[in-house]
């Protein structure tokens, strides 16, 4: 790691260089909280590519989000150490279907995906799930519990989304570092169950 000189302008954890690094994709429909989650959990200054939503998108992008004024057009990026040995590189993809080509590119090299969803707009998660399954990514669904939104039980959500029992579903608050981190831990634990048995 002698190639990296840490500057004062860039606080954040320093990696030793021998950690295991895992690329994780953060996906979800528009407004599900992807950018919020990456901002909340990243231990380095995250990248966001938010642009103001314009009138050109009205009629295409959902307009029933009064507090949402910007949307991600390219990607989010953040990094988080889950423990001494494991570093997650988080790549957030835009949620709109017109950006799915970018999502496919961002998925290269990713081990798994965290699928964020707003329980008030479950139907918008389905195209994302289709794509993630098509890409062969292992995933966990993280239901972002927005303030003021109705709460549903896991059983009810599974029933509505027709989720296979093998797909984990967790609840989170994307604004919370710890809550988002817990969702990522659930994903990593699920990924571990998918790893082949070590050869003796």
């Amino acid at each position: 790691m002698q190639d990296y000189i840490d500057s004062d302008s860039d606080p954040g954890p320093v990696l030793r260089g021998n950690e295991r690094t895992v690329k994780i994709l953060i996906v979800g429909h528009m407004g599900a909280g992807k950018t919020t989650a990456v901002q909340a959990v990243s231990e380095i200054r995250p990248i966001k590519t938010e642009e103001v939503m314009t009138t050109a998108g009205s009629g295409i992008d959902r307009a029933d989000l009064p507090h949402k004024t910007t949307t991600t057009v390219a990607m989010d990026f953040g990094r988080v150490n889950l423990n001494e040995e494991l570093v997650l590189y988080l790549f957030g993809a835009p949620g709109q279907t017109r950006f799915f080509d970018i999502l496919e590119d961002l998925a290269h090299g990713a081990l798994g995906a965290l699928v964020l969803c707003d329980p008030r707009h479950l139907a918008e998660t389905y195209p994302i799930l289709d794509l993630v399954e098509e890409l062969g990514l292992t995933y966990v669904i993280a239901v972002n519990e927005f303030d003021g939104a109705d709460r549903y039980t896991e059983e009810r959500l599974r029933e509505v989304m027709e989720l296979a029992p093998s797909i984990p579903l967790v609840f989170c608050d994307a604004r919370s570092r710890l809550s988002t981190r817990d969702a990522l831990i659930a994903l990593v634990q699920h990924l571990l169950t998918k790893l082949p048995e070590p050869v003796r």
Binding site: D3, Y4, D6, I44, I47, A74, F77, Y89, F91, I102
Partner: peptide, 29 residues
């Protein structure tokens, strides 16, 4: 190509390197 740092010149700290690797992969895409 999947957005992770492989190597950098001296004077680029790791956190900056990781951010640039990620954003340039998006730029290329």
């Amino acid at each position: 190509a999947d957005g992770l740092t492989v190597a950098s010149s001296d004077g680029v700290n790791r956190n900056l390197a990781d951010r640039i690797a990620a954003s340039v992969s998006g730029l290329q895409s």
